[in-house]
Design a protein around this nucleic acid. Structure first.
Length: 566
DNA sequence: TGCCCTTTGAAGGGA
DNA sequence: TCCCTTCAAAGGGCA
């Protein structure tokens, strides 16, 4: 697996970190991915027929690309396959994106997608192909009439994740090309990304047809007014949509929204303020509820008033309550780990026999730590954009608004909770999930890349965690429950002190997490007790980490460790 | 039916 | 500034 070129400075992992159980499987996976990709592409072909036909008069670049093939769908197919080949080649060449988890990353570097738009504002054909591939239901310009977008999008609207990611051959991050391929640097959005979509044929601004919106973020409440989430790539698996415009949303006039360049590319032309009527029921015009908006009946507590906007407070109690009942539940933006989890869960599930999310999440947590800084930085950046977008969409929304929306969760370290209660609560926590992950533990568990080396400038730059570190550092996984040494080491991205442990294995949870779940479950298995298949042979670095880890463990009893003793 | 579990990170409030 | 709490996703387990 290729490492970052020239990054030798903090190359913690040495070569051994590249050795993982998954490497072999990776080969197979690539093969299967290709097979699967082709299979998927077969399906894709048919959806590309019309597009190709409709663009017979496309640009010269397309003409140049186009092979003299009689079937335009095959052309698209070939081009798409070229992308895979190119992606694979780049991956093998040791591109920036090195993780075997992300075969799709190289797509971010597809040259043609660097500027997927033609001079007239239309998507380049390959970009269209790509977009079609990534958003099969996305009616990109030129593909109009391909399908009736107003028809429900069945596959994407399920809230359940398919056990096997069908689109594993394309990394979900690839749609981030939307942001740019400049490693998420908020660049200047293409000029065509104006609130209005230019008709590629006429050049006349027009209201985007719903079919041009990402199918993963179909318009929900307010139908046309619904904003498709630009991070829809995260959703495809679940078919969820992140955000929506709640009734009463956009408390600020939309034009007043300060859209920076990054946001512009995020929101793109689909976030036209002209298409933001309020829909009281949080339903897409198709009648499909927006996943980001949980029906009050589902999530909202009957007596909850804390989700009321100021405007609602000013209304009459009855009316306010009425609207409150209608008011959708605006979910929190996903953080980096959540984004990662969402993406990788299906993969882990597919790799493992595990089904329990708790166990899966443990694996994901460890894999998260095994990610390189760059990889994590991508997710941090994504999360940052998520938050940014969320804040733009819901200017008045506060995370506090959702407090109490869920049922009261375990509050085992409440002062009033009795020890009996606590012990009862922790009975289930004695279940040890991790051993069962030995089959599918992170190949990168030996990666060690997240260890406490200072962030590289690029990573730090890319990290949105930097501004938020004030809050997040306390929750850094590296921080020990006991925090015996104080906050001595630094967040790998922010460079800020973030904990005492010098290894990346979470020992319990910090903060409130540990307060209710810092039992043995949260405790990592000592390296020495891990199955061989769970960890690669320790590099010198990891041996040092082992030593440190053991030292830490020696200072902590291995028995049930809770923070309830506080 | 609905909470619990598990993970990390973000946000907000209180001290 | 630090600490704590809550929530975000997910889905099997369990009462």
């Amino acid at each position: 697996m290729p490492q970052l070129n020239g990054g030798g400075g903090d190359d913690l992992g040495a070569n051994d970190e590249m050795i993982s159980f998954k490497d072999e499987g990776e080969q197979e996976e690539k093969i299967s991915e290709n097979v699967s990709a082709e299979r998927d592409l077969d399906d894709l072909k048919s959806s590309l027929v019309n597009e190709s036909e409709n663009n017979s008069s496309s640009s010269d670049s397309e003409q140049a690309e186009r092979r003299p093939q009689p079937r335009p769908d095959l052309d698209s197919y070939e081009k798409t396959r070229d992308y895979f080949s190119e992606a694979l080649r780049r991956q093998q060449d040791g591109g920036f994106f090195k993780s075997p988890h992300y075969p799709g990353y190289p797509f971010l570097m597809i040259p043609d997608l660097t500027n997927p738009y033609l001079s007239n504002g239309a998507l380049s054909p390959s970009a269209r192909t790509y977009l079609q591939m990534k958003w099969p239901l996305l009616d990109v310009p030129g593909a109009a009439g391909l399908k009736d977008s107003r028809s429900p999008t069945p596959g994407h609207l399920s809230n359940k994740v398919p056990v096997v990611q069908h689109a594993h051959h394309v990394h979900p991050l690839t749609p981030l090309i939307t942001y740019s391929n400049e490693h998420f640097s908020p660049g200047t959005p293409p000029s065509h990304l104006s609130p209005e979509i230019l008709d590629p044929k006429t050049g006349i601004p027009r209201t985007p047809h719903p079919s041009e919106l990402s199918p993963y973020y179909p318009l929900s409440p307010g139908a046309v007014g619904q904003i498709p989430h630009p991070l829809g790539w995260l959703v495809p698996q679940q078919g969820q949509h992140m955000y929506s415009i709640p009734p009463g949303g956009f408390r600020h006039p939309y034009p007043a929204l300060a859209m920076n360049a990054s946001m512009s590319s995020l929101v793109s032309s689909r976030f036209s303020p002209h298409m933001v009527p309020h829909h009281p029921h949080g339903l897409h015009q198709t009648g499909i509820p927006h996943p980001a908006i949980v029906s009050p009946a589902v999530k909202q507590e009957p007596n909850s008033h804390d989700n009321m906007s100021p405007s609602m407070h000013s209304k009459s109690p009855g009316l306010a309550k009425k609207e409150e009942d209608k008011k959708p539940h605006i979910k929190k933006p996903l953080n980096a780990f959540m984004l990662y989890m969402k993406e990788m869960r299906a993969k882990v599930v597919a790799e493992c026999t595990l089904k329990e999310s708790a166990a899966i999440n443990q694996i994901l947590g460890r894999r998260w730590h095994s990610l390189s800084r760059e990889e994590q930085a991508k997710y941090y950046e994504l999360a940052r954009k998520e938050r940014q977008l969320h804040s733009q969409l819901y200017p008045g929304w506060s995370a506090r608004d959702n407090y109490g929306k869920r049922k009261k969760r375990k509050r085992d370290n409440k002062p009033d909770s009795t020890p009996e209660d606590f012990s009862i609560r922790n009975k289930k926590q004695c279940v040890q999930y991790l051993p069962s992950e030995k089959m599918c533990d992170s190949p990168g568990s030996s990666h060690g890349s997240m260890l406490d080396s200072p962030a590289t400038p690029s990573a730090a730059l890319a990290s949105p965690a930097a501004p938020a570190a004030t809050h997040s550092e306390q929750a850094q996984p590296l921080s020990l429950t006991t925090k015996p040494e104080g906050r001595l080491h630094h967040h790998f991205l922010t460079g800020k002190p973030s904990g005492s442990a010098s290894i990346s294995i979470p020992i319990g949870s910090s903060g409130s997490h540990s307060s209710h779940s810092a039992a043995i479950l949260s405790r990592p298995i000592p390296f020495s007790s891990l199955h061989h298949s769970m960890l690669s042979p320790p590099s010198p670095f990891h041996q040092a980490a082992l030593h440190s880890h053991h030292a830490l463990f020696q200072s902590q009893p291995l028995s049930l460790v809770t923070k309830s003793s506080d």
